[in-house]
Nucleic acid binder design. Structure first.
Lengths: 147, 147
DNA sequence: TCTAAAGGCTCTAGTCACTAGAGCATCAAG
DNA sequence: CTTGATGCTCTAGTGACTAGAGCCTTTAGA
C-alpha cells in the first residue's frame, strides 16, 4: 500500500493531478488510513499507469475514461478501443501536417529577415500581410489543444 | 468604418473573440456609435489581421502582444521580433518531433490489434504497460497546448 | 411608419487538464 | 519531542477562447 506521494513517485503523475483524477471520477477514491490520508494498492497503481500512458499518447481524459471502461470488460470485442485509438491517430496525423505547414512558414519568415529595423522586418511584414504567405494555413481552432 | 460583425467577416476572427481581445487589451477599445456599438477603422482591421495571422502561426497571445508593441516602432532593430519568431519555430519543431513519436506508437498499437476481444487487445495492453512501447515518450506537459 | 429579424451589448460561467496557494493536520526520522 | 516533509481541503488561476442569458439597436421589407 502506498501513500499518494509514493504513488506519484511510482507512476510519474504529480500528487495534485492524482487528486484531480479522483475528483473527476477517473480514479476511484481509495481507502484512507487513520489520519485520513489516501492509501493505494497495486491495482490503483496499474490504473494510474494506464492513464498516464494514454495521456502521453495524447488521448483526452474522456477517451481514457472510455478506454478504462472497456478494459474492465475483457470478454468484449475490442472494436471500440480500436476506434478510439484510430481516431487519436488520425488527429495526431492532422496535427503533424498542420505543424509542418507552420514550420515551413516560420522558417521562410525567419530566413528572409535581414536583421535590420522593424520597418524592413520580414517577420513583422509577413505577419501583417497574409498574402505574403506561400501556404494557406488553417484556423487556429485546428491548431488548438494537444496530443 | 465597420461594425464588429463586418470586422469579423473581413478578418475571419469571430465576434466574441474580438471583444475578448479588447478585454485583454490586445486590441484598443474603439469608438462607439450613438447606440453604443463598436465602430472600427482600417487600422484596427490591419491590427486584427496581424493578430489572426500570428495566431494561425501558433504564436501565443503574449508573444503577439510583444510583436505588436515592436511593430509600432518602425525605426527599432528587429532583433527581438526575430527572436520571438525563432523561439516559436523551435517550439513548433519540438512539437513535430514529439508528435511523430506518438504517431509511430499509435500506428504500432493500431496495426497490432487483431480485432478480437478486449482481453487480447493490443491497444489496451500497450496502454497498460509502457514497457511494450518502442520509444520513450515525453511527459504530457511537453505535449500540452498548441501552435 | 411599423415590425420583425439580425446583429449588438454586458455579464457570467464553462471548456481542458491541470497548477498554485492558503491554511491547516499528520507522519517519519533524528 | 521536535521538526520538516508530506498530506488534507478548498478556492482560484492558466490560455484562448466559447456559450448562454437577457437585454438593446439597427436594418430591411411591407
Amino acid at each position: 500500500m502506498f501513500s499518494i506521494g509514493k504513488l506519484a513517485g511510482a507512476t510519474g503523475v504529480k500528487v495534485p493531478t492524482i487528486r484531480y483524477y479522483e475528483q473527476i471520477g477517473l480514479l476511484a477514491a481509495p481507502d484512507r488510513n487513520s489520519g485520513n490520508q489516501r492509501l493505494y494498492d497495486d491495482a490503483a497503481r496499474a490504473r494510474l499507469a494506464f492513464i498516464r500512458h494514454a495521456r502521453e499518447l495524447g488521448f483526452p481524459l474522456e477517451a481514457i475514461r472510455e478506454l478504462l471502461g472497456l478494459s474492465d470488460d475483457p470478454a468484449r470485442s475490442c472494436k471500440q478501443a480500436d476506434a478510439i485509438a484510430q481516431r487519436q491517430l488520425v488527429q495526431v496525423e492532422a496535427r503533424i501536417a498542420r505543424l509542418n505547414a507552420l514550420r515551413a512558414e516560420l522558417e521562410r519568415m525567419v530566413h528572409q529577415c535581414a536583421h535590420g529595423t522593424i520597418a524592413e522586418c520580414r517577420v513583422i511584414e509577413v505577419l501583417g500581410n497574409h498574402a505574403l504567405c506561400t501556404h494557406e494555413h488553417a484556423e487556429p481552432s485546428l491548431v488548438q489543444e494537444e496530443a
